[in-house]
Write a protein that binds this DNA or RNA. Structure first.
Length: 843
RNA sequence: GCCGGAGUGGCGGAACGGCAGACGCAGCGGACUUAAACUCCGCGGCCCUCGGGCGUGUGGGUUCGACUCCCACCUCCGGCACCA
């Protein structure tokens, strides 16, 4: 499209200048500052319109944002802009998950304090985010490493401590030898440290735990409240919590001295138990073998198992190992005497650490029995199977009970009920539930985290630091290097304290908290970011929360997202907030790949957001990361694709800057008497409004929304090129189309949209009402009807919308192609779908 | 093994019971240019002679009609996994 000779050549699209200009305007006007926030302890007036708390997972300030951040925050920005222009009170804050190992490790390398590294990184990240033009309320920015913030992290910890939800106890825990700290179960992937990949070891240590297992059922049950969470995440959490219904059954040692309970999900197979297993760590083990000939071998085995790494012991393809203890227990259901073995496939921290082995119907027990020549007994058989048929492999499936006394003939489900009642009546067992979920180990033997606000008194034990002495400040230390205990332990001023209870000498806790604690409540702090008397203001928090739309990466499915749900439930039980779930709707974005791999520095395949902004502008980058493909999918980065996004913005720029007619926003033109080509453009404009609105609001389908705007822009460009002399109605339809494209594009590319909107004579596009489609223009007066024979497309016809069945059939019969296709055949049926198709079924 | 998700042009993808391949990238042809880039216009699943035939991982089914729904299978991705 060349410029007509007498019009001035339009100015070039200068992204850099435009973006700087509008970012300044928004900041000067406080365009995205949220009024409904507790500031200086003053509770704001709560507005009487819908609210939208739009939140993306806060970044770890590593010094550079990456493309994943750009995609994440652009999506949130689109939603926030969309809701604002649709009349909602919007809150869209940002903060930094600022404690953690990378800054600490950098500090160790360079000798700079982690606080300095972190604040420098935060300053840089803030600039990068601002350069992308995100509509963030920067006045509510928080950093989890700020004493003003972590004071309240400590405060919440103390509330949990008071409730018995935070406790110190000895347990076998995961230890990362490289990072020199313990890890939570969620932070161990296949036996390796989630952060550094080192194989973790098991160590028996006294550590702080949060009793998330107390909330296992609530975390499962309340998933019903999470209707808009991806099934994938719910399934992962369900899996992680791992609830299974079973029974606890009391076995006794044959001398009657000890009761050893087991947990089983198959109490129906109790008659099939032919041996009995203890975990190597089982507390009774040493006593059972004390002074017996088996003692040395058994205890050697137990010690070897304790030394084995989690990865080794957890390997399912390893042959079964175990040692006979020389002792027997009695099966309560038939008084049968069965041998007790120790085996390392039995886990101490699941169930009771003891297992009744039913080799006939459990694959692991069968493998163990085969290994050691132990008997296998069938107690479940199919309807056509003789109860005496020997088992050549474990049959864990359904069937009828056999060789099982009073259970014989029942199916598995009935037998479970019957045996549970039988055991319960005799006090020998109860229906119970097992969970895979473990308590959350939050101690870390590292420097750069929240100090656990407890002192250890010789007389009183662990004692909470009183609220009025919070925050327990992270002290300066000379050496941050991890040495198996927290660097805080080397600072005598920090270490020595007096007991808040008895005043006697005491020692401060030197472990710091897992940084996932910090991010488990930050969404509340935003609503009162500087409040000095409480972590948040209940009234304001209850107004904004739960978060209406939360957006982040799938990698937090069982980490942050589980922990934050747990914290919310605790705060709810403490009467501090009304919500039971923090995130009403969750969207998990896909990863951006390049050259078939996740972008990472070590692979050298990183595309730096800043470079793209330098070359093409922030609007191009924002548009491209959303246009790439479905927001939830993993997608390959394309350098050429970015160019395409920029080309589109250039095209829109040229279109709007060369629109004929006087400046000034136009209203929707009247359809009556309009030139057909421009009526078509008007219809296109209206259907684009409808599509973009639905795609953003209901489907989270940004790439299709953008493609619809592109179609509209292309259509307007063609209409302009094809018709140099325009009737007034046509002119208006053209301007209206361009203007609407700009308006719809705003959430995606706010700077260029604002600039063009201004050029069109508009003002403050970010506050302008989102356009509404005119329903009367969404229905067409002429439609294309598909003519089929036996479901195969044979012809098309243009007919007036709303034509009757008879009219449509007449049109079909008039078609030469249809006539040819049905010639000489018997007409069996005529299918007519109004305004869509006619299908003639012939034989 | 169990649970979840996905298979459509050269590529990212669209269509979610009714015209398969919108939009974009790459490609080809053309215009502009001394030339190149930019930009613009056009073509574009495969086979084939216009007419047509075949095409959404594979095989069945439901339906007038299936990328879409149902059953079975294959492949890939993700999660859990000696959890009794």
């Amino acid at each position: 499209m060349s410029s007509p000779p007498n019009t001035p050549r339009p100015d070039r699209y200068d992204a850099e200048a435009i973006e700087a200009r509008w970012q300044r305007v928004w900041a000067d006007e406080g365009a995205f500052t949220c009024e409904v926030i507790s500031r200086d302890g003053v509770v704001p007036v709560l507005p009487d319109r819908p609210k939208a708390y739009v939140l993306e997972m806060l970044p770890y300030p590593s010094g550079e944002i990456h493309m994943g951040h750009v995609k994440n925050y652009t999506m949130g920005d689109v939603v926030a802009h969309f809701r604002r222009r649709n009349g909602a009170a919007v809150f869209h804050p940002m903060g930094y998950d600022a404690f953690g190992l990378p800054a600490e490790n950098a500090a160790i390398r360079t000798g700079e304090p982690p606080a300095l590294v972190t604040s420098r990184n935060i300053a840089r990240i803030r600039l990068q985010l601002q350069r992308l033009g995100f509509a963030i309320d920067w006045s509510t920015e928080i950093s989890t490493a700020d004493p003003e913030y972590y004071r309240w992290t400590q405060w919440i910890f103390l509330r949990m401590f008071e409730k018995g939800l935070a406790e110190r106890r000895s347990a076998a825990v995961n230890w990362c030898p490289k990072d020199q700290t313990v890890l939570a179960n969620e932070q161990v992937i296949d036996g390796h440290c989630e952060r550094c990949g080192t194989q973790v070891e098991l160590r028996q240590l006294t550590q702080w735990f949060l009793r998330i297992t107390d909330y296992a059922d609530a975390l499962l049950d309340d998933m019903a409240l999470l209707e808009d969470w991806p099934e994938r995440v719910l399934s992962m959490q369900r899996n992680w919590i791992g609830r299974s219904q079973g029974a606890r059954v009391a076995f006794r040692t044959e001398d009657g001295a000890h009761e050893v309970p087991v947990f089983t999900t198959r109490p129906d197979t109790l008659f099939g138990a032919t041996f009995f297993l203890l975990a190597p760590e089982h507390p009774l083990l040493a006593e059972l073998v004390a002074g017996r000939p088996e003692e040395a071998e058994v205890m050697d085995y137990a010690r070897a198992a304790a030394r084995a790494s989690l990865a080794d012991r957890g390997a399912t393809d390893r042959p079964k190992t175990g040692v006979f203890t020389g002792r027997y227990v009695v099966n309560p259901v038939n008084d049968e005497r069965i041998p007790v073995w120790v085996a390392d496939y039995v886990l101490m921290d699941y169930g009771t650490g003891a297992v009744m082995a039913v080799p006939g119907h459990d694959e692991r027990d069968f493998a163990f029995a085969a290994q050691f020549g132990l008997p296998v007994r069938r107690v479940v058989a199919g309807d056509d199977t003789d109860p005496a048929t020997p088992l050549t492999e474990a049959e864990p499936g359904d069937g009828r009970l056999v060789n099982s006394g009073f259970l014989d003939g029942m199916d598995v489900a009935d037998a479970k009920t019957a045996i549970a009642a039988w055991l319960s009546e005799r006090g020998l067992g109860d229906a119970t539930v097992g969970y895979r979920l473990r308590d959350w180990l939050i101690s870390r033997q590292r420097y750069w985290g929240v100090p656990i606000p407890v002192v250890h008194c010789e007389a009183c034990g662990p004692v909470a630091v009183p609220d009025d002495q919070l925050p327990v400040l992270l002290p300066e230390v000379d050496d941050y290097a991890p040495r198996g205990q927290s660097p805080l332990a080397t600072n005598p001023e920090f270490l020595n304290a007096s007991c808040p209870g008895c005043g006697g000498p005491a020692r401060r806790e030197t472990d710091t908290m897992d940084t996932f604690v910090d991010s488990s409540w930050y969404f509340l702090r935003y609503t009162a970011p500087h409040l000095s008397t409480a972590p948040f203001e209940r009234e304001v928090a209850d107004y904004w929360l739960p978060v209406d739309q939360y957006i982040g990466g799938i990698e937090h499915a069982v980490l942050h997202l589980l922990y934050a749900r747990f914290f919310t439930k605790v705060l709810n039980d403490l009467g501090l907030v009304a919500m039971r779930e923090p995130f009403a709707r969750l969207f998990t974005q896909g990863m951006i790949y390049r050259d078939g791999a996740k972008m990472s520095k070590s692979k050298g395949n990183v595309v730096a957001p800043d470079e793209i902004v330098d070359r093409f502008g922030a609007d191009t980058l924002r548009l491209y990361v959303l246009f790439m493909g479905p927001a939830a999918d993993d997608i390959e980065w394309s350098d050429r694709g970015v160019v395409g996004a920029r080309r589109f913005l250039d095209r829109l720029w040229t279109l709007v800057r060369t629109l004929p007619g006087d400046p000034g926003l136009v209203d929707r033109p009247a359809a009556d008497g309009m030139d057909p080509a421009f009526l078509e453009l008007l219809r296109k404009t209206e259907s684009t409004i409808a599509k973009v609105t639905a795609d953003v609001d209901e489907r989270f389908s940004f790439h299709t929304a953008i493609s619809a705007i592109q179609e509209l822009t292309n259509a307007a460009g063609r209409a302009q090129a094809d018709a140099p002399d325009l009737a007034p109605g046509s002119l208006r339809a053209l301007r209206y189309a361009g203007q609407t494209a700009v308006s719809l594009l705003f959430p995606f590319a706010p700077h260029i949209s604002s600039e063009l909107w201004e050029a069109l004579g508009g003002d403050r596009l970010w506050a302008a009402a989102w356009p509404d489609a005119d329903p009367s223009l969404l229905v067409r007066d002429v439609v294309t009807v598909v003519l089929q024979v036996n479901g195969k497309l044979r012809d098309r016809a243009e007919v007036p919308a709303g034509s009757s069945q008879e009219e449509l059939l007449a049109v079909a019969r008039d078609s030469a192609k249809i006539a040819g296709a049905i010639e000489g055949k018997e007409l069996l049926r005529e299918i007519v779908v109004p305004d869509r198709l006619v299908n003639l079924v012939v034989r």
